[in-house]
Design a protein around this nucleic acid. Structure first.
Length: 586
RNA sequence: GCCGUUGUGGCUUAGCGGUAUAGCGGCUGAUUCGUAAUCAGCAGGCCGAGGGUUCAAGUCCCUCCAACGGCUCCA
């Protein structure tokens, strides 16, 4: 694909950059169309993104609605159709500033003013439209074949909530209409898998106005939650963890000591009891620290791994709430590991291996991110450096690739974040490992070493699922509600063809029930197709057991799975199969 | 918190100034019917909450609440 660079050279674009160029040009065409329809519009940033492109526009008092998008899109098609040549030119900074001011582009002018270097700036021109841009771009607008505007939203100027909110027009573009259609289909598939919708369908969880952001788990959802917890407990016991439980509400003085009162106050729920302030825990660490500090410890006891399924409450801004993905109360599968300096590397790699084991169970791939010291943090530079090096060393010893997220660590220490990739290629932050030198100082923790010294332990904070609520949301979308048998709220459903074989169906049902299989018997006077529809497509039951006269005669059962395939076997064979599957968590 | 949109029985939804639509689900009856919806009848709603405009308000206006799409923030 031919593109034009800002020096004016026309060249072949590397394959992997084509999409970026297409989308960036689409953003320019969008801006040109908007300017034609709304001449008073001024433009901020309009980049290509991972999923498409957008342009942030200031439209003054004009309010745009979704209904206006078709007209803008139509104008874009017009620009593509007349096939304007796209031409770059370069101006010295002062002239660039002047040009943008003349064209009433205050955001572009501000952007120029913000640039430190006094270098010439590059522009691209197509017809009457001129935009400041480093390029490259397509050579002609006609090269833009497949694009679509996908919606409107608000966005802050320079992504800063202190700044003015602009109108963001979102769109996407591809090299071919086929790719565009595939993308839109994938979006539809994601919508079909929306955990909020499936959660309603399968009666997993609910929300109520009396507690926005506080999920209610329904019986079916609770089965999934408990199955995840059971698996988690087995794994943690096997890996040398001990489980504890600490209070939901503790005196404010604890949170002052831990630093949460200073660094996390605006997210904490607090209440006054007997003239004292109490806080609902937003994190479990101080509770774990209290347990460690309950008695003196020998160096021989370390590492001490205290695991806690802690329910935390955080007052998140209401605009961020989103199903189970972003809630105000959630269960962290937390653990706090207290250890000696010489145990850091081994402990961190053990945690990484544990989390890897959990994610592999569900077929998730993941990537790692190292988050470093944030602005609002506590502790000395030396401690932060030592903690950050501890994480880096572990990652490098295991030879794991990772990216760095500057300034995104917790206020008490740096962290490694695990970003899950689900079957639709979307990523979610779940597990994290945080290395903390600060809490042990704040709470004056120590242990007795071999020379009767009192060194300070070092702490790891870590989660695997992250939030069990969020993890369940991800699992719902990952599996589209079709959970593996060990997690499925209903594992098998006996469907009765006609009353003539009711007794046999009841026998089979009872056998499964006795074997502790989660199952139901549907003996209503309904057609078999109707029962299948409900069991397979609404309840998403892994095994439908169809029983009619044919099965009664041969003493077999017909097993229908969620892929609509049917096999015949004896009840005993089926029981062995499903029991093994559940036991192995397949 | 900010920008925008939405809010009608359990779910999906019609109505957008003149006494509330339908489908699914539920209940009752009939049907006993073999792999994605058998037929009929019945019940179920002070149209998110509170104010206002109007002879008259799901329907127009204001405030609040919640949800949705984003932004900022985050497990």
């Amino acid at each position: 694909m031919k593109v034009i660079y800002n020096g004016g050279n026309v060249g072949e674009c590397p394959k992997e950059e084509e999409l970026h160029v297409i989308r960036h040009t689409a953003a320019h065409v969008l801006a040109q169309a908007v300017k034609r329809l709304y001449p008073h519009a001024s433009f901020a940033y309009g980049p290509a993104t991972e999923k498409g492109f957008y342009y942030d526009v200031d439209l003054g008092d004009t309010k745009l609605s979704d209904a206006d998008l078709p007209a803008i899109e139509q104008e874009m098609r017009e620009i593509v159709k007349v096939n304007l040549p796209i031409k770059p030119f370069i101006l010295p900074r002062a002239d660039a500033l002047k040009l943008m001011e003349e064209r009433h582009e205050p955001y572009k002018a501000e952007h120029i003013a913000d640039l430190e270097e006094d270098e010439p700036l590059s522009f691209y021109e197509q017809g009457e439209y001129i935009d400041m841009c480093v390029g490259p771009h397509l050579t002609y607008t006609k090269t833009l074949k497949a694009f679509k505007l996908t919606g409107l939203s608000g966005a802050y100027w320079k992504n800063d909530s202190k700044n003015k909110m602009l109108t963001r027009i979102n769109g996407t573009a591809f090299a071919t209409t086929k790719e565009l259609e595939d993308f839109l289909k994938l979006q539809e598939e994601a919508e079909r898998r929306d955990h909020r919708k499936i959660g309603k369908d399968m009666k997993l969880f609910m929300f109520e106005d009396v507690g926005p952001g506080f999920p209610f788990f329904l019986p079916n959802g609770m089965i999934i939650k408990n199955a995840l917890i059971e698996y988690w407990r087995e794994l943690h016991t096997a890996n040398g963890y001990q489980e504890i439980s600490t209070p939901l509400i503790m005196n404010r003085c604890l949170w002052e000591t831990s630093g949460h009162w200073d660094h996390y106050k605006e997210n904490m729920y607090a209440t006054a009891i007997d003239d004292e302030d109490f806080c609902i825990k937003p994190m479990n660490c101080p509770g774990g620290v209290m347990v460690y500090a309950n008695e003196p410890h020998s160096y021989r006891e370390l590492p001490m791994r205290l695991a806690e399924l802690g329910i935390v409450h955080r007052h998140e801004l209401k605009g961020v709430l989103h199903g189970l993905f972003r809630v105000r109360s959630f269960t962290q599968d937390d653990a706090h590991i207290f250890m000696r300096q010489d145990q850091i590397a081994e402990e961190i790699s053990a945690v990484i291996r544990l989390i890897d084991q959990v994610y592999s169970k569900f077929g998730f791939e993941y990537s790692l991110e190292l988050s470093t010291r944030p602005e609002d943090s506590m502790g000395s530079d030396e401690d932060w450096e030592a903690a950050t090096n501890g994480l880096v060393n572990a990652l490098e010893q295991l030879n794991l690739p990772y990216t760095i997220n500057e300034g995104d660590g917790a206020f008490y220490g740096p962290k490694i974040d695990f970003h899950l990739r689900d079957c639709l290629g979307r990523t979610w932050q779940c597990g994290t490992i945080q290395l903390d030198f600060q809490m042990p100082i704040k709470f004056d923790l120590s242990y007795v070493d071999e020379n009767d010294g009192r060194p300070r332990p070092i702490m790891i904070h870590r989660v695997c699922y992250g939030s069990i609520e969020r993890f369940i949301g991800i699992l719902i979308e990952h599996f589209a509600g079709k959970f593996p048998v060990w997690l499925a709220p209903m594992q098998a459903k006996v469907l009765l063809v006609s009353k003539k074989s009711e007794e046999y169906a009841a026998e089979v049902y009872q056998m499964l029930k006795d074997a502790k299989i989660r199952c139901e018997l549907d003996n209503r006077n309904e057609k078999i197709g109707y029962m299948i529809r409900q069991a397979q497509y609404t309840e998403r039951v892994p095994y439908m057991i169809i029983i009619g006269e044919k099965e009664l005669e041969t003493k077999t059962i017909s097993i229908r799975t969620r892929d609509s395939k049917t096999v015949s076997m004896t009840p005993d064979e089926f029981l062995r199969k499903i029991t093994a599957e559940i036991a192995n968590r397949e």
